[in-house]
Design a protein around this nucleic acid. Sequence first.
DNA 1: TATTGTTATACTCTATAACTATA
DNA 2: TATAGTTATAGAGTATAACAATA
Lengths: 146, 146
Amino acid sequence: MVPVIRELARCYQAFQRASDAHIRHSGLTPPQFDIVVTLGNTDGMTFKDLGNRTLITKGTLTGVVDRLEARGLVARAASPTDGRSTLVKLTPEGERLFHRVFEPHLAFLAPAFESLPECGRKELEKRLRQLRLALEKRSQDLARQG
Amino acid sequence: MVPVIRELARCYQAFQRASDAHIRHSGLTPPQFDIVVTLGNTDGMTFKDLGNRTLITKGTLTGVVDRLEARGLVARAASPTDGRSTLVKLTPEGERLFHRVFEPHLAFLAPAFESLPECGRKELEKRLRQLRLALEKRSQDLARQG
DNA sequence: TATTGTTATACTCTATAACTATA
DNA sequence: TATAGTTATAGAGTATAACAATA
C-alpha cells in the first residue's frame, strides 16, 4: 500500500510543479486559480459549493473571493432561492482570463498525458475514481467517528 | 485528457481531506508533517534534498525546519562533506512522533487502498509512475524554455 | 436550532530577492 | 562563478471561534 500512496503523492506533486510555474504567468495564486477554474464553464455557484469542490474552507474562501472580486474577476450575487446564500460567478473579465489561461495550460500539459496510451489513461481514470470514492467513504467514517 | 486530470485532482484532494483531519491530531501543520514523514526512516538529508522531495522552496523550508527544531522534533547538523550544506534529521522525539502518527495514519487509510484489488493497486501505481515521469519531463522542458 | 457567509485573531506558508559562506 | 542555506519583507492562506442573518 505504501508504494501506491507514494506514487499518488509524487504524481500529484509533479502535476502541481508543472502547473504552478505555468499558472503564475496569470498573476493568480494557486488557490485563486483553483477558484477560477472551478467557476469556469458554470453559471456560478455558492460559497458552500466552492468549498466542497476545493480544499478551501469557508473562512479562507471569503478572503480568496475578496481578492478576486477586488481584481474584477468574480462577482457576488444574492441567491434567489436562499437568503443565506451568496452566488459567486466569473465576470466577463474573469471569463476572458479563464479562457486565456486554462486552455494554454491544458495544451502545455497535454504531451505528458498523451504519452500514456489511450487505454492507460482510461485505466488510470477508472482506478483513481475507485480510490477516490473509497477515500471519501473513509472521511465520512471518520466524521461519524471512525 | 480533462477527465483523467479531474480524477487525479479529485483523488488527491480526497486523500488530503482524509489525511489532514487525521494529521492535525499530531499538532503538526501539513507542511511540517510532510517534512517529518520525508525524514522518517532515513539518516537525515540536506535542505536541498528536502526541497526536491516536497513542494517547499528553500526560503520557506528554513522557517518550517525552524519551527520543528524549536519543538525538538528535528536537529540541524553540518554536512561532513560539503561546508555549505546542512543536514536535517529527526531527533529521538521526532522519531517517536513519526511512529506514533504515521503508522496509525496508514492504518486509517488502509481500508480505502485495500478496497482496490491487488492487481488494481499495481496497475494504478504503474500508471501513476508513467504519468509522473512524463510530467517531470514537461517541467524540465518548461525550465529550459518550452 | 441549524446553516450560510463574514469577521477577528494569530500564525504559518509563500515568493522574491539580497545576502553569507563555502565550493 | 555557482551553489547551499539564511534573512527580510510583504502578502496570502489557514484554523478557529464568535457572530449576524436567514432557514
